[in-house]
């Protein structure tokens, strides 16, 4: 049995009007594994990703706790405790969908990459710049030197996502939370980005929480999958045994994925 690095207990998210977005979420992530989180849109996948480290906007009520590497964090308290949440974010990295709107439009790539090294790892600027350039090359960005001084709007969608991955790697994460990292990219680039994430995962050995609505990606990418429906976990299974499921929700998602594949 692999070592458990993150365990979420009874996570709840409520709107200001006391409407549940997530309810009673329990899940475990083991070191070095890829866990998929699947579900139809609106099922609360992205909210859960953000809730795990207390990143939700203050207008949403957050409850529950996580145990991260044997340390207990109360999520409601975590949002106000900047020290703990900085510590946590130093070890848990994110990549998001729509990378171009998550990058700061007014800062160039060098500024946004080096700040991780400078402020979190106390490196000097020249060294931070070298490390950043190295990371851009590692994630397969061509003309890395030039791209360092580009602004987000000058990058293509694929490049922006590679930059985002570089930023995540800069923190040397133990867990990478990838929230639909390819849903805005076209199919050829989608496969490039996914195999990049997979390569990096094998090379650095971090765990991945892979969030998607696409079940064909789930099978390609992960060993285990958790299904979310209307804010609750409805099924947990090994990807190898996905076809044998008795859960009608999972069956319908599977059928939808197959119909789409036939169509393509």
């Amino acid at each position: 049995m692999k070592e458990e690095i993150l365990s979420a207990k009874n996570i709840e998210v409520l709107t200001a009007a006391k409407k549940f977005i997530l309810k009673g979420i329990n899940l475990q992530i083991f070191s070095g594994e890829v866990l998929s989180l699947a579900g139809e849109s609106g099922s609360g996948k992205s909210t859960l990703a953000l809730a795990l480290t207390g990143l939700l906007p203050a207008s949403l009520k957050l409850g529950g706790e996580i145990i991260w590497q044997k340390r207990r964090f109360d999520l409601a308290a975590l949002r106000k405790d900047t020290l703990s949440s900085r510590m946590l974010h130093g070890q848990i990295s994110y990549i998001f969908q729509e990378p171009s709107s998550f990058l700061n439009p007014t800062l160039n790539i060098a500024a946004q990459l080096t700040e991780v090294f400078i402020y979190n790892q106390k490196k000097a600027y020249p060294q931070a710049l070298d490390l950043s350039r190295g990371l851009l090359e590692l994630v397969g960005i061509k003309e890395a030197e030039k791209k360092l001084y580009s602004f987000p709007h000058q990058l293509s969608g694929g490049e922006a996502q590679r930059v985002m991955i570089a930023m995540a790697l800069a923190q040397r994460p133990k867990l990478l939370i990838a929230d639909e990292p390819t849903s805005n990219l076209d199919v050829t680039i989608e496969m490039e980005i996914l195999s990049l994430i997979k390569n990096m995962q094998q090379r650095f050995g971090f765990a991945v929480l892979f969030i998607t609505h696409d079940l064909s990606l789930v099978r390609y990418f992960s060993q285990r999958v958790v299904f979310l429906k209307a804010g609750r976990i409805v099924e947990e299974s090994d990807t190898a045994h996905l076809k044998d499921t008795a859960n009608p929700y999972v069956q319908s998602l599977l059928e939808a994925a197959e119909a789409l594949q036939d169509y393509e």
Binding site: L55, S93, F102, V116
Partner: peptide
Amino acid sequence: SKFIILARAKGLPQRLILLRH
């Protein structure tokens, strides 16, 4: 905005998030 979520996810100091981002 979303880039503030990313800045926080990067574990940057609060002061830097407020001023720079």
